[in-house]
Design a protein around this nucleic acid. Structure first.
Lengths: 200, 200
DNA sequence: CGCCTAGTTGGCAGCGACTGCCAAATATGA
DNA sequence: TCATATTTGGCAGTCGCTGCCAACTAGGCG
């Protein structure tokens, strides 16, 4: 861990890095499979480790928490979110910028099916939902300065917070409905519908 | 537990009920004190039980989870919320109805100081925040039919969800700012400010 | 008053997520 | 090939929480 053995682009150099990559993927896949098969709460870390062929201790070294086994490192979400939004043209409307961020995050999923499965799990498991909301709250705080700067005359903290939280609230409402409809339609359309209902 | 020994109004009848009441209060106070003194995560159930003079087992019988030690049964929040909103005149605007609900929930705190202390703890402790958001999400779902019915032409699920979630988002932004300002000003004023920022 | 019963309490063992510590295994570079 | 840097696994322990069972106690009855 002294230096990352893979150069940003990909192509793992050392054997270690390749093995790590492989193990990581194996764990992730096993976890997702078991979660969808028997539910998140009904799947223990011990079982995942056993079926993935690693020790519990190692599993925790790869992924710090059980939640991280879903969706890899969700920290990437935050990264993509802030990056996308700060890349928006300075004169773009706050709502437009936020929309772009939301779209970018949604695009992070490998496939429509994977996204649906994850959202389904997320919305049907209380503990997962709680964790996700918590992490999201941190993203929101990260976004604060970016959004505040984009508001007319530099908005106040509460106003900027409210705007950000509203965008996420719409994403929530949209994804929840999307799951209920078994993935029919486009989430972003639902998002727009939600935002329209709010901003009337 | 076969029948509640106190008639709705108050006046605990049996000695048992009185003892229970007393123990419950003692636990609650001890917990809140320790939480504010050393932080939520740094306070163990064992310590609370010890200092409150009950066994851990009993503590868990009174309050099912560690979170419940803050703010008693938060289920009351949900109750007050739905009650208040359904009591609003049928022709009232959705936003007005929601505002009334929010105000009613805020009025549930014993004092300004207590509210500030609770909010401070809530916003500074990740695990608490997560639990609270989760519980709130359930309240939101309870509100869905009520709000949907009040929207023009009976709104769709996503729209109603978005509206409700936005109201809570504003409450979040407001309370967070309120805490940062050490309780200066009125939360509802901040709430209005937030809502205005969102609805432009 | 004494006893029986129902409700209450406490202690113990155990589960699951998670961490620290130490020893064994393994890839790497000289 | 050997010394070194890393990685891995196992073990014990913490913390929230639950089930189970034995000890206790208030309340009602004769």
């Amino acid at each position: 861990m002294k230096q990352e053995a893979e150069t940003a682009a990909g192509a793992p150099t050392t054997l270690w890095a390749r093995t790590r990559q492989l193990a990581s993927q194996e764990i992730l896949e096993t976890a997702l499979r078991l979660f969808t098969e028997q539910g998140y709460d009904q799947t223990s870390i011990a079982q995942i480790a056993r079926e993935a062929g690693v020790s519990q201790r190692t599993l925790f070294r790869y992924f710090g928490t059980k939640e991280d086994l879903l969706g890899g490192n969700q920290d990437r979400f935050g990264q993509v979110l802030t990056d996308t939004i700060s890349e928006q043209p300075a004169e773009a409307d706050v709502w437009v910028a936020l929309r772009a961020g939301v779209a970018a995050v949604l695009a992070l999923h490998d496939s429509r099916e994977q996204a649906l499965e994850r959202f389904r799990l997320l919305h049907s498991t209380a503990s997962l939902r709680a964790g996700w909301l918590e992490k999201r709250l941190r993203f929101q705080e990260d976004l604060l300065p970016l959004i505040k700067a984009r508001m007319d005359g530099g908005g106040t903290d509460p106003k900027a917070r409210a705007v950000i939280a509203t965008a996420f609230a719409c994403l929530d409402a949209a994804s929840m409905t999307w799951v209920e409809n078994d993935g029919k339609g486009d989430i972003m359309d639902l998002y727009d519908e939600c935002l329209a209902a709010v901003r009337g």
